[in-house]
């Protein structure tokens, strides 16, 4: 699957980084451990958005919708005792040690259903219209979480009491849960990498670059975009499930516009169409949030300033994301080396 040497080297570097992360994290303090876990969770969200923004060229400003749907579904099926059959099914699956599988399957099916429905509405729109309609649809989900208090507990949010165990291994403490998150993260990364390098993924890049030509070649543009939207929504759902399991609490502010905007910014900051770039973006944004929150309360204010400064600087020096920055340093150095070699 991995053909050329440079690509192989890159994959090995990325894998090496994550293996190193897996080795180092248990020796960090609790605060850092939970920070790393949080970065991985939001890394999944940002990567899933990269499938849309970077590879398909669809700027969605409502990616928190599927994240939110999945995280609320997780919280609801784990706590809602009035809904006898979902709760009983969860209890039964949990007693077999399969509670997590049940949660993932249930929540991802719901996220898929919402992505399929919203994608159906949104994909016809182009450019800024797509952006506006995805934002509006995400606000619908937020409105449901906020107002439909019979199910979502409204403004109070839902407290989840504990994490289900995986094959009898308890995930309650930080370190096992970190390894679980890392495993889920790596599975998602692998799947998305395969997706991006598959013929389907290449077609999406083709659509991003020149839609008319792909249409002329006989590709069904609408269907390709629609499927990409659904797949991105499902991966965003994975992030949502992990968020509820990590935080053990979900409330409307978690799925506000600010989450969608943060995901978009993580992609733009890390470099679109790079898949690991958004993870770097997630690491930067989440670390900044955690460290700044220690000193000042006003995170959105600072986030807004960071957006503006980063974008203006990026514009000034003409770079696309942090990975673009590496490329910029490397590229001018390449031609002089060629004659020597």
């Amino acid at each position: 699957m991995v053909e050329n040497l440079a690509e192989k080297k890159r994959v090995l570097i990325v894998l090496g980084v994550f293996v190193a992360l897996g080795v180092v994290t248990p020796f960090l303090d609790l605060f850092m451990q939970s920070l790393v876990t949080e970065i991985l969770v939001f890394g999944i969200l940002a990567m899933s958005l990269d499938l849309l923004l970077g590879f398909t060229g669809l700027a969605s400003l409502g990616h928190a919708a599927y994240f939110g749907v999945a995280s609320y579904t997780t919280a609801i099926i784990m706590t809602k005792e009035d809904w006898t059959w979902t709760f009983a099914a969860f209890q039964w699956a949990d007693s077999l040690g399969l509670g997590l599988f049940y949660i993932f399957i249930f929540a991802l099916v719901v996220a898929l259903a919402f992505a399929a429905f919203f994608g159906f509405l949104a994909i016809r729109a182009v450019g800024v219209y797509f952006l506006m309609i995805t934002l509006s649809l995400a606000m619908v989900i937020w409105g449901l979480a906020y107002r439909w208090s019979a199910v979502t507990e409204g403004d109070n949010g839902i407290n989840v009491l504990g994490r289900p165990s995986l094959f009898g291994i308890s995930l309650e403490s930080e370190i096992p849960f970190f390894y679980f998150t890392l495993a889920v993260f790596l599975i998602c990364l692998g799947l998305m990498y395969m997706f991006v390098r598959s013929p389907f993924g290449k077609t999406l890049v083709g659509i991003r670059e020149r839609e008319e030509r792909m249409q002329m070649l006989g590709y069904n543009i609408w269907l390709h975009k629609y499927l990409a939207f659904i797949i991105a929504g499902v991966f965003s759902g994975v992030a949502g499930v992990m968020w509820t399991l990590f935080n053990l609490f979900v409330s409307p502010p978690d799925i506000e516009l600010i989450t969608s905007a943060e995901a978009l910014f993580m992609v733009a900051l890390g470099g679109p169409a790079t898949l690991v770039g958004p993870v770097i973006g997630s690491a930067i944004i989440r670390s900044l949030q955690q460290f700044i929150s220690i000193y000042v309360e006003r995170w959105p204010l600072i986030l807004g300033a960071i957006y503006i400064i980063t974008i203006m600087l990026g514009r000034l020096y003409g770079v696309e994301g942090i990975l673009g920055l590496f490329g910029k340093f490397r590229k001018p150095a390449a031609p002089p080396e060629a004659p020597e070699g």
Binding site: L53, L61, A261, I308, I311
Partner: peptide, 11 residues
Amino acid sequence: TLSQVLVTIGF
């Protein structure tokens, strides 16, 4: 478009 969106949402 992406830069405009991020800057205006920053504001």
